[in-house]
Computed example of a mutant assay.
Amino acid sequence: MNASTNSVAVNTSAAEIPVWITYRSSLTIWFIVMLLFAILGTFLNSLLICAVLSSRKLRRGSGILILNCLFINFVLCGIDMPILIYTTYFGEYYQHAPKYFCKYLVLFYYSFVYTVDWAQLAIGINRFVAIFFPHIYTKWTTPKVIIPMLVIPYVIPFACNLVMFYDIGAHYQAMKPWGACGVKPLPHNNTYTVVVALCVALPVAALGVLYITIFVVVWSRSFTSQRQIESAEGHPVAVGNQSALFRRRYRSVKMLFLTAVWYSAALLPAPITSSFFSAEYNSQPLLQLILRGLLLAVYATSPVRMHVKLTILDRTW
């Protein structure tokens, strides 16, 4: 009887051990790797921002929109993620943090996370117009168009998160098991799901439709033009969509599409899992760390891809 009682006491005691003690080694490794990614991402993003600002050709059109993405990545790597990393590693001290601490931190953090998706969509719309409506593209590089495409990606995510900031449908609070700030959806309320759909699923899906449309139409036109050339019996045929400008713009589309896929593959798992599989997400401590690391890896490595894109764009305009 005593043995059984002791066994139960040991198991109960073990179950109550905080995760930052149980997973101390894994958490320490995660902390070091995340800090390195944050430092690297901050440096690369700031370096490329300076490079864009120093180039007159890149301070217009898609260059401005890409600069906006770099700025978002810079804020996430240099401010948001370091706070998240610190509060996760020292989570035991933030379990009872003031309520306003998490409210403002999460409002700021998720607003920028969701802004990435809408900023990418703005670039996709710009490329869509450049490919299919080149005769009006000049108008799309004017401040009247560029400024709204810069502002809207901030307004929508901030408005969505402001709803939960006032505890409508969800709470911003210290989350188990790590104690870092996060979103706790209210039971039987779909507000957080709607926010994820509007700020993540909608822009990602719309961006996918834009790029797929570009690829399908361009491939179809190229196939038709090739058939016309073959049937011309040696006579030259003018193929407008094969101009040098079009080919350069199309190469930029392909590079931007690959970047969007990389972003989506890393950004979608965390909000989808936390929204639709919250129980499983909250019960797997290391899964949360891995998904957060995946997010930071995207923000830190995007300048490498951005450099290639900007090089292409520099030759495009």
Results as ranks from 00 to 15, higher is better:
114 Y>G: 15
149 M>Y: 06
170 A>E: 04
116 V>S: 00
162 L>A: 12
164 M>L: 07
128 F>E: 08
161 N>K: 12
142 T>Y: 02
111 S>V: 13
149 M>E: 10
150 L>I: 14
139 K>D: 07
169 G>V: 04
117 D>Y: 08
160 C>A: 06
120 Q>T: 12
175 M>V: 08
185 P>G: 10
123 I>C: 01
142 T>F: 03
123 I>W: 00
109 Y>T: 15
157 P>L: 07
124 G>N: 01
149 M>N: 11
144 K>I: 13
115 T>M: 06
131 I>R: 02
110 Y>W: 06
134 P>M: 13
142 T>N: 03
148 P>V: 10
188 H>V: 08
149 M>A: 14
122 A>K: 01
119 A>G: 02
137 Y>M: 13
119 A>S: 09
129 V>R: 03
110 Y>V: 03
133 F>D: 05
154 Y>G: 03
121 L>P: 00
112 F>Y: 15
116 V>C: 09
152 I>T: 12
139 K>Y: 06
130 A>F: 05
135 H>G: 09
172 Y>K: 03
144 K>E: 12
179 G>Q: 08
177 P>C: 07
189 N>H: 11
152 I>R: 01
127 R>K: 04
113 V>G: 07
115 T>G: 04
156 I>K: 02
159 A>R: 01
159 A>M: 13
161 N>V: 13
149 M>I: 09
